[in-house]
Simulated assay, not measured.
Amino acid sequence: MTLRKLRKQAGLSGDRLAARCNMSQSKVSRIESGKVRPSLVDIERILRALDAPPALAAEVSALARIAATEWQGARSMRRKGLDKKQLELAGLEASSTEFRFFLLSMLTALLSTPEYIRASLAHIPGDHSRAVARKLERQEVLYDRRKKFTFIVTEQAARSPFVSPDAMAVQLDRLASLTHLPNVRLGVLPIETRLPGCPLNTFTVYDERLATVETTAGVMVFRDPRDVRMYLDEFAGYDERALFGEAARERLAEWATAFRS
């Protein structure tokens, strides 16, 4: 509605604004009516075409950025059923081709053994059998050669004892085995690694279009290209310092042996 008001104040028709922005008139109309969510680039092109005052342009851009950020509260997800969240993630994985996971404190379900998955849900009241089943079903995506995965796992995430020592050793064996998949890069960050900055959250980047960031209270979803780029850059810093291939397998084997002993 704000954009429509600005257009009318500028004395422009929808057709003329569309021409200035190199957009279709129908797209401009859908943006103005709220039927389609514009990208930040779309908003900036329209504001420039309207010669909007700097203060107003900054306000509209800020609102658009907020609209491109979604909050998914943990309590709300639990009320809906954790299996519903797994279906949502499966859909996101089906529509994406390149994945980057930074795992700060625990492992993602895609890498986890059944015992580890059950233990990760043990603190949440209720029957989670369907959620466990959905998590295990999602692992099939790792074997889709059309998709590319990079996992960066900190030593804390790999070695935090969510299950018994023997089960943790098996979990580490699974991580090592997944490094042999041709479409999977799995790197580890030993505790002594000097990192660029201080990582605060587990996060995932899907292609270069969306980033999810996990907190204790829930999940933030970022679609603004600037926010996504920030997480891509952070991930690249960890990727440069992680151990991959045989070096990763040797470190994982060392940690597994420690659990078995």
Rank of each mutant, 00 (worst) to 15 (best):
T2D: 15
R4Y: 10
K5R: 13
K5Y: 08
L6I: 07
Q9W: 09
Q9R: 12
G11S: 07
G11M: 07
G14I: 09
A18Q: 08
A18S: 11
A18Y: 08
A19V: 14
C21M: 08
N22D: 14
N22T: 15
S24P: 04
S26P: 08
V28C: 02
I31A: 00
G34I: 10
G34L: 11
K35H: 12
V36D: 06
V36Q: 12
R37A: 10
R37T: 14
R37Q: 15
P38C: 06
S39L: 07
V41W: 10
D42W: 07
I43A: 00
L50V: 09
L50C: 04
L50E: 03
D51E: 15
A58F: 07
A58T: 12
E59C: 08
L63D: 13
A68L: 13
A68M: 07
Q72K: 15
A74L: 14
R75D: 15
M77A: 14
M77I: 14
K80M: 14
G81A: 03
L82T: 05
K85A: 13
L89R: 06
G91H: 07
L92R: 01
E93P: 00
A94D: 13
F99S: 00
R100S: 05
R100Q: 12
L103M: 12
L110M: 13
S112Y: 02
T113S: 06
Y116M: 05
L121E: 03
A122L: 14
G126Y: 05
D127N: 14
D127G: 04
H128G: 04
H128M: 12
R130G: 01
R130T: 14
A131H: 02
A131K: 02
V132K: 00
L136Y: 05
E137A: 07
E140C: 06
E140Y: 03
V141G: 00
K147H: 05
V153I: 14
T154N: 00
Q156D: 01
Q156L: 00
A157E: 01
A158L: 02
A158Y: 01
P161M: 05
P165H: 08
V170T: 13
L175I: 09
A176P: 04
S177I: 11
L178N: 04
L178M: 10
T179A: 03
H180Q: 14
R185H: 13
L189Y: 01
E192L: 06
T193V: 14
L195T: 13
G197P: 09
L200D: 10
N201G: 01
N201V: 10
T202E: 06
D207M: 02
D207V: 02
E208L: 06
V213N: 03
V213P: 02
V219P: 01
V221C: 11
V221K: 05
F222S: 01
D227M: 11
V228E: 07
Y231D: 01
Y238M: 12
E240M: 12
F244N: 03
F244M: 09
A247R: 15
E250C: 04
E250D: 13
E254P: 03
T257L: 15
T257E: 15
A258V: 14
A258N: 13
F259E: 07
R260P: 09
